[in-house]
Write a protein that binds this DNA or RNA. Structure first.
Lengths: 197, 197
DNA sequence: TGACAAAGCGACCAGCGTTCGCTATAATAA
DNA sequence: TTATTATAGCGAACGCTGGTCGCTTTGTCA
């Protein structure tokens, strides 16, 4: 972009996206800390200090699209949870949606899982808040199932956490035995079989 | 240690342990990359460049005790696996042992889970090799159970991975519903219930 | 007593994220 | 048409970082 031209908010946002896309691959390949602002600037085709006109600092690049992604998963989950279906079916659909979202944004979630701890405590807290909401939704679903006599009397929070923690490894396993969706079905079967009466 | 005194191998090893202990807390509190060699040196009560007489570089501090820890878990697992017990009991005992080891070396394993990706590819490969052996052992156990007609015909590798991946989050959850051992029992119950006929 | 080995360290290096003041230029006002 | 203003973009500098090197100090041993 030549000098002197005033960018609209949309253009600025587009530029931010360009920078992020340029950084993402390198973040994933080499890690967040190991990727230098000089590299990002070069990939984005601009001077290093110009990056700071679009992002306050390096971390801001990392969290640029995180908020949006987490919000989307949470909203999709809420939508499914509101459907008039049995707890079991809703549980399955939410996990399938969640998996699909991670598969589609594989690089992004990889970054979050492995570099999320590098975010400022403020940003980490925000992310955890979202995770808690999600967790509590699944817990509520399991509680419903127990009340309806479909599920055994398991600890609903432990079960919810257990289920959530199986998703990420399915996508990023180094020795997949098939498509993530297939592996997830197998895991869901074991889990459901495990909590059903 | 004053100059001129020649250290025995044991003394050198003890010194290495001192340095590692000094670094460990800071690694966990601030992260591996964010902890400087200058800080570690200060905590260890020595000049920064003297650290390099005991560790080749920063990463060597990180992996100093990793090899040993992973080896121990693997050996313990092998020992349990050789006992004349049913696959289910052996599976349970191995996971319980694994959990206990992580609980007892909580800080260490936290570091491995969150900073392991920062190790050189060589060290990462070694760690993964160990993980594969462990995984295959559990897979074999599940296969045995299937052959003996105790377990349903689940995908043994997927089930093994699923089980392994539930352990770490139990120890490091930010909202525990009780002792890790209790949570793990609940998870083991769900899992066993899930794969049993 | 002199030569040697080794523990320890200060000074330095290249590279890092970030800041700041400057330049160039399109849009606007007079 | 000319002067002013706003801003996109950048080069140079700053205080950090992990790591290296050559020197000093001191116990040991021939």
């Amino acid at each position: 972009m030549p000098k002197g031209i005033v960018l609209t908010t949309d253009e600025q946002n587009h530029r931010r996206h360009e920078i992020f896309e340029a950084a993402l691959d390198t973040f994933i390949e080499k890690g967040f800390v190991e990727t230098s602002m000089r590299e990002i600037a070069e990939l984005a085709g601009m001077g290093k200090s110009s990056l700071y006109d679009y992002f306050g600092n390096k971390e801001d690049i990392l969290i640029f699209v995180m908020e949006e992604a987490l919000e989307n998963v949470l909203n999709n989950a809420r939508r499914i949870n509101a459907l008039p279906l049995s707890p079991e079916v809703r549980l399955r659909q939410i996990i399938e949606m969640h998996l699909e979202y991670i598969v589609e944004n594989k690089k992004l979630f990889y970054l979050f899982s492995y570099e999320g701890r590098r975010m400022s405590s403020e940003n980490q807290q925000r992310a955890q808040q979202g995770r808690y909401m999600y967790q509590d939704m699944l817990r509520g679903l399991i509680e419903q199932g127990i009340q309806q006599g479909i599920f055994r009397e398991v600890d609903p929070l432990v079960a919810a956490r257990m289920l959530i923690n199986t998703i990420i490894p399915v996508v990023y396993t180094s020795r997949p035995t098939g498509a993530p969706q297939v592996m997830m079905q197998e895991i869901l079967d074991i889990f459901m079989n495990g909590i059903q009466k």
